[in-house]
Every structure is written in structure tokens, then in C-alpha cells.
Write a protein that binds this DNA or RNA. Structure first.
Lengths: 279, 279
DNA sequence: GCAAAAGTGTTCTTCGTACACCCATGA
DNA sequence: TCATGGGTGTACGAAGAACACTTTTGC
């Protein structure tokens, strides 16, 4: 707390009572097909220089916390998202050695292939959630709270789909739920339960076959049909420089039937009654 | 935003970058046996002088948000609680006309008879939640978020009991759940479901009969047994000046079997597996 | 004594869960 | 061709939902 006096001498913004600084932090979840990952940046400045931390930074005086979080996320990782979920504000008195800083924390879902390195952070990197290095500040604690919240939320909101591509197979979806919740589901029961929610749409196989040869590319027709389905609300285009992640040995997989999440149908079901996903 | 310059001239606390002010707000829920109520104070100063608002105020630089919220709550209403649930931080840029203010919001549960008027607020008063006056700042919005959160939380946490006395009847508990969730339950099914959770304890009728003549007083033996059951964690003593609330015509009621919430048993069940209340 | 609320059991339906075999594909 | 993962149906048990009458008490 010695530093604060230096700052005060140079200070231009003065208040009658002391004000804490306010930062935002983003816990970005990603799924590599096998494990849940989070996105960290290596801090390039003190305090905690060289430590890993969540993307985030000081909220500007003319932006909301959410705007600030999205801005920092974009600056530090290149990720441009539209949806963040605020899950807590952390206010321990000594959580930052520089001055009194409280942080408003969000979590977000990223399709892993759509992430690139940005300019602000020395490094940004994905880490499997069971294998996260020690984090700066109280970010270990914040991570625990974020995953607890994610576990709770995924029972009731269709947020898992935001971690997958527009089209996905049932086993993919099942692996996702299993790695978030840390449990194993019976495959047949998972199929049944997911299908009878009524929010999944089976992709026409013939159509899909003919498209799928353009693996990795963003085909015109496919794009159109998805836009018609989902409106403008989803991140689609891969960004130029995906962040390298520790590569895992991909098990060989049979192709499998593709599904997509039907947001329209979900919104209708949700309004009709108090609809639950219930896993 | 004109006022801020006055403050700046007198300011003693200076920073290199602008800092928002940080307040806390408490949405205190209470139950009058029929409807869910919230506790409001009438603002004695500008802005929104004369408007109703949540108890709350500026967070001090050496306290956590939760400590600040509890302090303000005690100062403004006399309520001394131990548990608050943080449910959101509100950061709209112009939510306070004085300067940039963000607020960290909590909700709390009060046993209605245990509330007294404090010194800070001109008035504190209970309002049925369907009949709340227009509120200061963005408190209408915050109230909506608080009740949404409460509805979600009561499915999974035994927080409803914090709105009732230590001993309560099933119909009381049912009315509570019904007024929070806005639904009607079949009485028999409600009994069954509540009892088979295993977290309720039937109060010995003979014992209860002999004690209940000391209505309103805090009997020695009863106090001992409750303390043994719940530890030091619950507000027990009625405070001297309960806040007047719009009196409602009490329907005449048959006495009924009393139950109490067994926290020990709940904690055991919760650890054993992922236990849910599920209403 | 009468009106209003408390207390109680059974049936039916729905949902969750356990479980095994065949098929398609990629190596 | 073989190993791996994808796809499918059924039977049982648990839990939820619908439903009516008797008892107690306050007025």
C-alpha cells in the first residue's frame, strides 16, 4: 500500500472520499473435444509479472462493466464475443497489492478454433481446467466460483452449445456435458433426454454429406441456412491466428449424425412454461 | 454531472485515472404470513429525496462489499443479519446523477418481527412485493433481478426457513413457497415432498403446548434446545421497535403441527450427494 | 354450530435409470 | 479385418401429480 502515495501525488482525479479502482475479469471457457479449457494470459507487468491471469483490466469511467470486459477481452486475446455472464464481484480488501481494487467477474464461452492472440498480452493460452497453473491475484478463487456457476447454469440454460460448432454430434455434446459436470452419462439415456427436450435439430444427412467435404472452410450455403436459423447472434468466422493449445491425441472417430441447436424453438419452449434442461 | 466538479475541488483522494464510486444495496425480503415483502427506506437527501430505496450506501475503503452492506443495513434499519447473498453488480453509466456509481447488490432474509427502525433513514417500511412504490435510481430493475434470483435459489437452498420463525407449520411454509414462486401446490403433495427431504423435524406437541403459553417471549429451555440445534448462527431476539407494516386481515387459523428446519441434517444430506430441494 | 383451515393415502402417469447388441468407419 | 466408437429399445422402479373426506378449532 506504499505505492498509493506516489499515485496520489500525480493524481488528477480527486474525490472527497476514497474510491476503489474497478476492474473486470473474464473467465473464458473452451472445449477441445475432450476437456474443458480456460483461456489465460501471461502478465507482462507487475504485480504478478509472468504469472497467468484472466483477461481483464480497468473499467473505464464511461463504459459499463460488461463493455469493459468485452473490450479488454478483445484487446488481450482478439476474441470478439457478444455474451458475457456476470457471476460475481470480488472485494477482498487486499486482493491487489497496488491499491484497493474490486473486480467484476464474467464468464464466457468460446468456440476454441475462433481464438487468436492479441496485442496487449505477452501470451494467451488455453489450459485444461484440471491443469491450470497458479494464478495471479485471487484468480484461483475466482476460477473456482466460475466453474461452480457454470455447473449450476448448464442445468437450466442451453449454454453448452456455445462451446461447440454450429453442428455437432451427440457424442460430442455428451463429452462436453460430462467434462463440465464431471460425471458419466449412459449414452442411450443422454440421447433420449436431449432429443426429447425438443431444442435439437437433426441435420439432413445428404445435405450435410455434400457440404462436409469442405472441411474447415465456411461454405456459402451452410452459412446461409445457419444465419436464417440463428439470426446474427453467433460468432461464425474463424479468426486468423488460433492460439496454440497443448495438442491432445485425437481418438479416431466415426463420422456420426450432426445436430444443431434450434434457438427459436428453445425460446418458444422457455416462454410457454418454466422449461428446464435438467441434467 | 455538474456537481462532480465541486467535489473534485474539495477532493482529498486523488488518482491517476478516474475511479467510480462503489455502493452496496440490500434487498431484504420478509414474509408476513401471506405475502412476500421487502424493506425500503425513504431517502432523506438528494438525489431522489423522498423516494423509496433499498438500504445501502457507500462502501468504505477498508471493508469488503459484504461488510459494507451489513453495516449500512444495520445503520439504516437496525437489522443485524449475518448472511447476505450477492446477486449482481449494476454498472449502467448514468444510474446515479451525482457521479459514476456502481452498486454491488445483495439480498437477505429477515424474520419480520425482528426489525426495528434505525437512525440513518427518515423512515423504513415493509411493502408487499406486488405493491412497491416507484423506487430511486435503478432500484426497480434491481428488485426484479433480486426476485428472479430468489426464485431460482429457493429451488436448491433452504433459504425459505430464514423468513419464518424457528418453528412453523406446514401451511405457513407452503404459503411462503407459493408466494415466492407464484404458484399453487397441492397440500398433500407439498407435505409429502417436504417431509421426505428429511430436513424437517416435527416438534413434540406436548413440549410445544407447554411452552407456547409464553407467546412472544423467549423461553429458556426452548432457547437452549434451538441453540444446540443451530449453533450461534441465527437471529433470535426480537428487537424493541418492529417497523409498522400495512396490517392485513389475518384469516383465523387452526393451530397446526409445528416443524423446525434441521440444519445439521441438511448439511449431512448436502455433502452425501448433490441434494436438491426441487420445488 | 358453523365456517375455515389442518391433516391424511392411493392411483396413475411420467421420468430416470440400468442394460446389450449391431453397425459404420478408419487404421 | 479388426478395433473403436456410433446408434438404438425395453423393462423396472421412483417420483410427481391428481384427487376427497374427516378432524380440529376459532369465531
Amino acid at each position: 500500500m506504499r505505492q498509493i502515495y506516489t499515485i496520489m501525488k500525480e493524481g488528477k482525479y480527486c474525490y472527497q472520499y476514497p474510491h476503489p479502482a474497478v476492474t473486470t475479469d473474464c473467465v473464458v471457457f473452451g472445449f477441445d473435444g475432450k476437456r474443458l479449457n480456460i483461456l489465460l494470459i501471461e502478465r507482462g507487468a507487475e504485480p504478478f509479472k509472468g504469472c497467468w491471469a484472466f483477461p481483464g483490466g480497468f473499467m473505464r469511467i464511461d463504459e459499463t462493466a460488461e463493455q469493459g470486459a468485452l473490450r479488454e477481452l478483445s484487446e488481450e486475446t482478439g476474441l470478439k464475443l457478444e455474451y458475457l455472464k456476470q457471476f460475481g464481484t470480488f472485494t477482498a480488501v487486499n486482493r491487489d497489492p497496488r491499491e484497493r481494487v474490486i473486480t467484476i467477474a464474467f464468464y464466457a464461452m468460446a468456440k476454441k478454433s475462433f481464438v487468436q492472440g492479441g496485442d496487449d498480452a505477452a501470451k494467451a493460452q488455453w489450459f485444461p481446467i484440471e491443469d491450470v497453473p497458479p494464478l495471479a491475484f485471487d484468480h484461483d478463487y475466482i476460477l473456482r466460483k466460475a466453474t461452480e456457476q457454470l455447473k449450476r447454469d448448464i442445468h437450466f440454460e442451453p449454454i453448452g452449445f456455445d462451446l461447440l460448432d454450429e453442428q455437432f454430434t451427440m457424442p460430442e455434446l455428451q463429452r462436453l456435458y460430462e467434462s463440465i459436470l464431471g460425471v458419466h452419462f449412459d449414452r442411450r439415456n443422454f440421447y433420449k433426454k436431449m432429443l426429447q427436450t425438443g431444442i435439437l435439430e437433426e441435420i439432413d444427412d445428404d445435405f450435410e454429406e455434400s457440404e462436409s467435404q469442405f472441411f474447415g472452410a465456411h461454405h456459402e450455403m451452410k452459412s446461409m441456412s445457419i444465419d436464417a436459423l440463428f439470426g446474427e447472434s453467433r460468432q461464425e468466422m474463424p479468426l486468423p491466428h488460433p492460439i496454440a493449445a497443448p495438442s491432445i491425441e485425437e481418438p479416431r472417430r466415426r463420422k456420426g449424425t450432426k445436430f444443431s441447436f434450434n434457438k427459436e424453438r428453445y425460446d418458444r419452449l422457455k416462454e410457454d412454461k418454466n422449461f428446464r434442461l435438467e441434467f
